[in-house]
Simulated assay, not measured.
Amino acid sequence: MCSPAHFAVEYAINPWMDPATPVDPELAVKQWDGLRETLIGLGHEVHLLDPEPGLPDMVFAANGAVTVDGTAYGARFRHEQRSAEAAAHRSWYEARGWRFVAPVRTNEGEGDFAYLPEAHGGLLLAGYGFRTELPAHAEAQEALGRPVVSLHLVDPRFYHLDVALAALDDANVVYFPGAFSVASQRVLAQLFPDAVLAADEDALAFGLNLVSDGRHVVLASEATRLAGTLRAAGYQPVPVELAELRKGGGSVKCCVAELRP
């Protein structure tokens, strides 16, 4: 995770960002601290990436890489405003002994990649259409040695995979069908017949931008209907308030890069 010490909405690179809407920096830090403390309280270890001035979106740490078995496939950001973040993530991983694969193709890390180690022998779901380019999926497959399933995102409000789909455990997912092309919806239905489906109201509340450890599902507090659906499916929802960071187009998952050493 990376503190939102420099968080601001100074430009608009997704439909949720509005530079004219005021941001409360102190509240953003308080809400982020609440998320970090929630994860620690659930028994998870949280490592920190130092925020850098001039990079207001660094708080969205998930976008810096995707990791599998000690290898980090790094990010190459679509927009110039975020491009310098990639070097900070690379330095963090290399300083800690990870094998780091620098990308050639544009991709935004776990923003557009979800790893399920027990689904069909282990696979990566990968989004494209707005940020990550399709050739990056092949590059990730070579870097990480896992089959990659490409999913076409068609609604600009769901510009990253991680606002439209999330891994609930090692083999199953929750997603909002309307974020995907008809063909990609068919693929998801074939791969995950028991998937949890989210309603549009919860998807638009960033309810799918969640983190799950297979039992506890940490998600935006506004996604109340989805919390009930997850509870009925046997998971334990853990709501958190991140409304201030949502002004930047992200929520729980965007703030958390999952480490798989």
Rank of each mutant, 00 (worst) to 15 (best):
residue 8 A to T: 09
residue 9 V to L: 10
residue 10 E to I: 03
residue 10 E to C: 15
residue 14 N to I: 05
residue 16 W to S: 11
residue 19 P to C: 05
residue 19 P to G: 06
residue 31 Q to G: 13
residue 35 L to H: 08
residue 35 L to P: 13
residue 37 E to Y: 05
residue 37 E to D: 08
residue 39 L to H: 01
residue 46 V to Q: 08
residue 48 L to H: 09
residue 51 P to S: 07
residue 58 M to F: 11
residue 59 V to A: 04
residue 60 F to H: 02
residue 61 A to R: 00
residue 69 D to E: 14
residue 70 G to P: 02
residue 70 G to F: 06
residue 71 T to H: 07
residue 72 A to Y: 12
residue 76 R to G: 13
residue 77 F to H: 09
residue 77 F to E: 01
residue 78 R to E: 08
residue 78 R to W: 14
residue 82 R to A: 15
residue 91 S to K: 15
residue 92 W to F: 15
residue 93 Y to G: 02
residue 101 V to T: 07
residue 105 R to N: 11
residue 108 E to F: 13
residue 110 E to A: 05
residue 110 E to F: 10
residue 111 G to E: 03
residue 114 A to D: 06
residue 115 Y to A: 10
residue 118 E to K: 15
residue 118 E to Y: 13
residue 118 E to G: 14
residue 119 A to E: 04
residue 119 A to Y: 01
residue 121 G to C: 11
residue 121 G to S: 10
residue 123 L to N: 03
residue 132 T to E: 10
residue 135 P to Y: 11
residue 136 A to D: 06
residue 138 A to W: 08
residue 139 E to G: 06
residue 146 R to F: 08
residue 153 L to P: 01
residue 160 H to A: 01
residue 161 L to R: 04
residue 162 D to P: 02
residue 164 A to D: 09
residue 164 A to S: 03
residue 168 L to N: 11
residue 169 D to L: 14
residue 169 D to F: 04
residue 170 D to C: 02
residue 172 N to V: 10
residue 176 F to K: 08
residue 178 G to I: 05
residue 179 A to R: 00
residue 179 A to I: 09
residue 180 F to R: 02
residue 181 S to N: 06
residue 182 V to P: 06
residue 184 S to R: 00
residue 187 V to L: 15
residue 187 V to I: 14
residue 188 L to K: 00
residue 188 L to R: 11
residue 191 L to G: 08
residue 194 D to R: 15
residue 196 V to G: 08
residue 199 A to K: 13
residue 200 D to K: 14
residue 201 E to L: 14
residue 203 A to E: 10
residue 205 A to C: 13
residue 208 L to D: 04
residue 213 D to K: 14
residue 214 G to Y: 07
residue 214 G to M: 05
residue 216 H to C: 10
residue 217 V to T: 02
residue 218 V to K: 02
residue 221 S to D: 12
residue 226 L to I: 08
residue 226 L to R: 01
residue 230 L to D: 09
residue 231 R to L: 11
residue 233 A to Q: 03
residue 233 A to C: 09
residue 238 V to T: 12
residue 239 P to W: 07
residue 240 V to E: 00
residue 243 A to P: 05
residue 244 E to R: 12
residue 244 E to Y: 01
residue 246 R to Q: 15
residue 248 G to I: 03
residue 249 G to E: 13
residue 250 G to P: 00
residue 255 C to K: 00
residue 256 V to H: 04
